[in-house]
Design a protein around this nucleic acid. Structure first.
Lengths: 214, 214, 214, 214
DNA sequence: AATGAATGAGATTTCATTCAT
DNA sequence: AATGAATGAAATCTCATTCAT
């Protein structure tokens, strides 16, 4: 999977015209290879069941190499969260900017998230996902959504476009709905992203409205 | 090391009116001790991170004794689920019967669940709850609530007292909200059960209403 | 399998007309039940692989009861050897007395042993005998034969009816032949006791003759 | 605790003329160390009674290292069998080729086997050989001898240099004699290899002759 | 930096034996 | 004596981490 140590080849940075030296290129590639493998492995086995060995087995690298990049399974998870957030947050931000109103924003955010979910799920092919009792790890993207939504909600409240409710509760509620409905959606074949997104949007907006009445 | 089969207690057969000998009393007490420890440990570490050792260390019993009662961590989890469900489901049912309407039912169910949550949480004393990335195991009670709520929702739809929406999505959404808001609530000190329950109820009812409009 | 604790029934020694009191009867029966189970278990799993638990599971008795009769697996094995020898040695002795000559004695002894072997093998139904690399425990009967044959050979030498050879070597050789040929015989279907016994007898007698020439 | 991969030795690649790096040397040395320890332990305790722990304790290596080389006790036994057979079979073959007749072949094979036996026995230093009831595991060399002898006997029969008898019975008988007499020989001090080998040879040849008469 | 064998703590599980009943 | 649950030492095996190369 990963580029690994790529000892072969005579090309160098000058010849390839790239700005990164071979070492840096390799370093970045190895780091990414580990992150990619970790994402797959965490998705397949869950955080706890996954071992560093499982991750490194998913790359071309040797076991010791893992520790050149990360101190532990926990650290790679955090890096993954950062990575996921870095990739997913701009999408969310863009939706926020294009959104015409709070309602629109929620719908866009949820749709983006569900699209992301289905893509990842397809990629993962989760044959062993359900071993043991059902356990869910909050994925990096979920965390990104959580924080983004909480910020968005706080913003909306500050700007007066959302009712004045506890933003932590609100964000938690929204994320809970998205998560669980997302799960149910993924179990259906084919997963209906738009339907689920509409459901979640309506549910959350309804919830927000009702909570605001109090 | 261990107290062994002398779990004692002051009740005796005469007092309890039961025909169990000391042996049987002890057996039941040990089984319960393991279940109690398992509940604490699962709550503290999560299902995956918890080990059989952790569980047995949470009792006065010797390591091998675990296997007199359960074959594996999974089996004790299932027993716990049965136990939790057996204890919590009647409460939920009672609330359902006492409820005057769907709205009332939701509020009662959520309140009962949050009360249960706080009690269990107190009992658990979770100093290390947040080690590692956040992972949530669906607790037995959660599963009980899920199934109960799904049934309740299906009932309500069938009786026409709830709008006709996808019951799986609806139950999932409700459970998601309760779960996440419950989490946030538990992090606050002191946890405001009634406030959180009102929030969730309003949110869910608002959500249901809005979803039903479509 | 075993008579076990036989708590029921009102008969007592006086009524049954037996000389043994109930306790002694029960004791003897339990002891025999353990021996029977041990024989089966050792035959099936081999000495090392067999556990005290396996033995006691083969009876109606409780685990602790084993230790009222034997101190360990080793002790029950020794008792089994004594038991087997006690039962098998008279048969061998009888053959020795009926035998007209050394040749006849060998043939009779081997035939008796192979008959015994086939009976035991049938009774045992050895489905798991061959787990792991092939290992053979000398059965109590084998040991009895060994000692009997060695004594018989020593006798024959002393009486001048057998050539004067090292009796330990001779007995070892005879036992080795009987053992290995017995094994091969048991693998054939149906096992030909008489054929195998004739082969062994001829082989051993030929061997003895040749060795004696030196 | 352990010396680890610094198994050293004074030979280096230059001296041995081999291209193996230190790593590979070390790997091979460790594998051999485990095999050696396993051979000693199996000889001392028997296959069943021996544990992986016993084997690894017989080396300088750490417990986990065993599993870098073998999956289980059974696998190390098989490797040992391959190893033993690989080392002993050529010796047997050579004897077969040098033998002038069937008689000579048997004598040579038995002598080679007993020599091997005494060497191994010396190497092993068997202080606890007789713990527990007597149990014999067919050693890898024994298996090699068995197969070699069976083939040799079949050959001899085919070429008409041995009487036409059941080759399985014959090989079994020969092996049985060699085994048991070998055992008795080892218990004597000093072990008389030539005497035992002559005895076995005479015995087997006498046996073969007599059996062939029938 | 990469490699991958070695490490050893720790998890799971079995089972001979004890002992209160 | 019989019972059978409790015990805890010991066996098997895994895996995060180190470190010589």
């Amino acid at each position: 999977m990963a580029a690994g140590h790529m000892t072969a080849g005579t090309a160098n940075a000058a010849e390839t015209g790239e700005a990164l030296g071979r070492r840096e290129q390799s370093k970045a590639a190895n780091r990414q290879a580990i992150l990619d493998a970790a994402r797959r492995v965490f998705a397949q086995l869950g955080y706890e069941a996954a071992s560093v060995r499982d991750i490194i087995r998913g790359t071309d690298l040797a076991s010791g190499t893992f520790y050149n990049y990360f101190k532990s399974k926990e650290e790679v998870f955090e890096a993954l969260a950062d990575d996921g957030a870095r990739r997913f947050r701009p999408v969310l931000r863009a939706q926020r900017e294009q959104a015409t109103c709070f309602e629109d924003y929620i719908e866009r955010a949820v749709h983006a998230y569900f699209t992301f979910l289905v893509t990842e799920h397809r990629a993962g092919a989760h044959p062993t996902y359900d071993r043991g009792p059902h356990v869910r790890a909050n994925t990096p993207e979920m965390i990104a959504v959580f924080e983004e939504v909480r910020d968005g909600v706080a913003d909306a409240i500050a700007r007066g476009t959302a009712p004045m409710v506890d933003p932590d509760f609100l964000a938690a509620a929204a994320i809970g709905v998205a998560q669980e409905v997302g799960d149910v959606m993924l179990k259906r074949n084919p997963p209906d992203v738009s339907g689920a997104a509409r459901f979640v949007t309506a549910f959350v907006l309804g919830g927000v409205g009702k909570v605001g009445e109090r």
